[in-house]
Simulated assay, not measured.
Amino acid sequence: MSIKTVILQFICPDKPGLVSDLASWIASKNGNIRHADHHTDADAKLFLSRIEWDLDGFLLDKNEITSEVNLLEQRLNGKAVLSFSDDFPNVAIFVSKQSHCLVDLLWRVKAGELCMNVPLVISNHSDLEEICSNFSIPFKLIQVNKNNKADSESKILDLLHEYNIDLGVLAKYMQILSSSFLEQFPNLINIHHSFLPAFKGAQPYHQAWDRGVKLIGATAHYVTKDLDAGPIIEQTISNVSHRDEVSDLIRKGRDLERVALARALRLHLKRQVIVYRGRTAVFT
């Protein structure tokens, strides 16, 4: 039986005594702290903290914790994200034709490695419908072309609302989402098949092969309006040599993509990532 915990992510202006202040507040409510990680950004004069403690035995229920954290935000002029380990978010997976990331994520969810629900897979092609059927997950085909993009995105937004989706994962979804879409649903993680910021855009493995690189990588990042420029969560790399052809880079890259995306998603679900100033602090 897993232990239920409370996770507090907190950002505020830096000043002496903040670690003691937060820990004392938790201790005063009989909280048993399991993990505490802190970081000070000296340039921005910001204090970042992630604290996780047992829910069992804590003197406040979930609603009371939320109210007190709101007061904490006001007192310290900060911003908090409060989470509970037993609350599993609803995650929609976006795909096109490539199956490797989708299969990997669904297997990890089934094995209990990723604490999330997947009530929906969205695709612009029908190729992966059978895979979703094997996992008993609804598959929604929303075809996209240059003439119906706005209408297609509207249908996707309706589905996200209908299925009460908290997070979207672009698992090799080969479409660029519009700024209008991202304004309405900004909670997205993407896997990019290169070691960003190098080789942005299409065919990065071909670009890498042309340059004769000796390392290739994959990058999982949050999606923003700027293409392939969102805050980076996780990156993985592999050695390559002059003997490798483009097909070898693509094969190795698929392995990297699976690992990077799964790691990034796990970090996000465990609330180990704090986004600030267009970048991330990852507490591992």
Rank of each mutant, 00 (worst) to 15 (best):
K4F: 00
K4V: 00
I7E: 01
Q9I: 01
C12K: 03
D14C: 08
V19E: 11
D21K: 15
L22R: 02
A23F: 03
S24N: 15
W25I: 01
K29I: 03
G31S: 11
R34E: 11
R34S: 10
A36D: 09
T40P: 01
A42D: 15
D43T: 13
F47D: 06
F47Y: 11
I51E: 08
E52H: 05
D54P: 05
L55Y: 09
D56I: 02
D56K: 10
D56T: 01
F58Y: 04
F58P: 00
F58R: 00
D61L: 06
D61K: 08
E64H: 05
T66E: 06
S67Y: 12
E73C: 11
E73R: 09
E73P: 09
Q74N: 13
L76F: 07
K79E: 13
A80V: 09
V81G: 03
V81R: 09
F84W: 10
F84P: 06
D86A: 07
D87Y: 08
F88E: 11
N90E: 07
V91N: 07
Q98I: 15
Q98F: 14
S99D: 14
S99L: 09
H100K: 05
H100T: 05
C101Y: 02
V103S: 05
D104A: 06
V109F: 00
V109L: 04
K110T: 06
G112W: 01
L114V: 00
L114K: 00
M116Y: 05
I122M: 10
I122Q: 08
N124H: 06
N134M: 12
S136C: 13
I137T: 11
I137K: 04
P138W: 12
P138T: 05
K140S: 15
L141T: 12
Q143A: 12
Q143T: 10
Q143S: 14
V144G: 12
A150H: 13
D151E: 15
S152T: 11
L160N: 07
L160M: 07
D166I: 02
A171W: 03
A171N: 03
A171C: 03
K172D: 07
Y173H: 11
L177C: 10
L177F: 10
S178P: 00
S178I: 04
S180H: 08
E183S: 12
N187E: 09
N187C: 02
N190E: 04
N190L: 07
H192R: 07
H192D: 07
S194Q: 04
F195E: 09
K200H: 02
G201P: 06
A202I: 11
A208S: 07
A208G: 02
K214S: 11
L215N: 03
A218H: 02
A218L: 01
A220E: 03
A220L: 01
A229E: 15
P231R: 06
I233T: 09
I233L: 10
S241H: 10
D244P: 01
E245A: 13
V246L: 09
I250M: 08
E257P: 04
A262V: 08
A264M: 05
L267G: 03
H268F: 13
H268S: 14
I274K: 09
R277M: 12
G278D: 13
R279F: 09
T280V: 13
A281F: 15
A281L: 15
F283M: 14
T284M: 12
